[in-house]
C-alpha cells in the first residue's frame, strides 16, 4: 500500500562528485520491490513537488531504504545536506518495479547508465537469490564507478566509461560487444539514447528487455497524467497510446513503448 510518511536519515555520504548515497529509516521499506521508486519532498516551500528517486537497496530487515541520487536542482541539493537523524518526508513504494521470478531467466543483463545504475543493485540481489546469473553492465562518464563494488557481490560487473578512464571506452553496448557477452533477458535503466540502443539490440536478439523510464512527474500516483510514455497499443487505463510512467511503469517491456 502506498503511504506518505516521515522517515529518518540514517546516514549519507557523497560517493562520487554530486552523487549522494542515503539510507532512510522508513516503513516504506516493508513492501518495496526493485525498480520501484519513492517520492521525496523538499522542506523548502518554494520547491513543492516531490522528487521521484529510485530505490537502490532495501535493508534485510525491511526497515530501511537506500537511495543513490544525483544533485540536479534545488530539491536534491536540499536533500544532499541532510545529516543522520534529519527527518525526511517520503511517499511510496511507487510504480511497478522489475519482474523477478524464479526460473524465468537463466542469464540476465542488468544495464545501468549514469544515475540509472542505482536501481540495479536491489534487482541484482533479488535475481541472484532466485538463481539467475547476473551480469551487470554499467555505463559511467569517467572513473567514478559508483556502486560497482556493491554490484560485484552478485556477479561480474562490466564497465564502460565515456572518457575511457574505466573499462571499455564508449557506452554499455560497446562493453557488451567487447566482452562478447550474451543473456536471455535484459533489465535496464538510464538515459533515453541508451534505452533506444537496448530496445534495438533486444529486438535483434529476440530477448525481452525490461526498461525503466523517467519523466517529469507531479503527483507520482497516476492522477495528474503528467508523466506519460507513448505506447505501441492503446493503453488499458488511458484508452489512448499513453501509459502513466509513475503507475503503469516505470518499468515497461521495451517492445511495448515508443521511445
Amino acid at each position: 500500500m502506498k503511504q506518505k510518511v516521515v522517515g529518518q536519515v540514517i546516514s549519507q555520504k557523497e560517493i562520487a562528485p554530486m552523487i549522494f548515497d542515503m539510507w532512510i529509516d522508513t516503513t516504506l521499506a516493508g513492501e518495496a520491490q526493485p525498480g520501484q521508486f519513492i517520492c521525496v519532498y523538499p522542506k523548502d516551500k518554494s520547491t513543492l513537488l516531490p522528487r521521484p528517486i529510485s530505490i537502490c537497496e532495501v535493508r534485510e530487515d525491511r526497515k530501511a531504504l537506500r537511495i543513490v541520487y544525483r544533485v540536479a536542482g534545488a530539491g536534491t541539493k536540499e536533500f544532499s545536506a541532510y545529516q543522520a537523524g534529519e527527518s525526511i518526508a517520503v511517499m511510496g513504494p511507487l510504480g511497478n518495479g522489475f519482474p523477478v521470478k524464479a526460473g524465468e531467466a537463466k542469464k540476465a543483463f542488468l544495464i545501468g547508465g549514469g544515475i540509472g545504475v542505482p536501481p540495479m543493485l536491489e534487482l541484482a540481489k533479488q535475481l541472484e537469490r532466485v538463481g539467475c546469473q547476473v551480469q551487470s553492465v554499467m555505463g559511467y562518464r569517467n572513473q567514478d564507478t559508483f556502486l560497482k563494488q556493491d554490484l560485484e557481490q552478485y556477479g561480474p560487473v562490466y564497465v564502460a566509461s565515456e572518457d575511457g578512464s574505466a573499462g571499455t571506452r564508449g557506452n554499455v553496448m560497446d562493453a557488451i560487444r567487447e566482452n562478447a557477452l550474451e543473456a536471455d533477458v535484459i533489465f535496464a535503466c538510464g538515459p533515453l539514447p541508451m534505452l533506444r540502443a537496448i530496445k534495438t539490440y533486444a529486438e535483434e536478439k529476440k530477448i525481452p528487455a525490461y526498461i525503466s523510464l523517467e519523466e517529469r512527474m507531479a503527483c507520482g500516483v497516476g492522477a495528474c497524467l503528467g508523466c506519460v510514455a507513448k505506447t505501441k497499443n492503446v493503453d488499458v487505463h488511458s484508452h489512448v497510446h499513453n501509459a502513466r510512467i509513475c503507475t503503469d511503469g516505470p518499468v515497461f517491456l521495451a517492445e511495448e513503448v515508443e521511445i
Binding site: 513543492l48 513537488l49 517529469r216 507531479a218 506519460v228 487505463h237
Partner: peptide, 28 residues
C-alpha cells in the same frame, strides 16, 4: 471521444507552484 493530450514534458516546477500542460488527456 478519447483525447491523447500533449507531448511530454507536461509538468514543471516553478517558485511556489507548478506549470502543467497535460492537454486534457482523457479516455472519452
Amino acid at each position: 471521444v478519447p483525447w491523447p493530450g500533449n507531448p511530454t514534458p507536461r509538468v514543471a516546477e516553478v517558485y511556489g507552484g507548478m506549470l502543467n500542460a497535460i492537454g486534457l488527456q482523457n479516455p472519452g
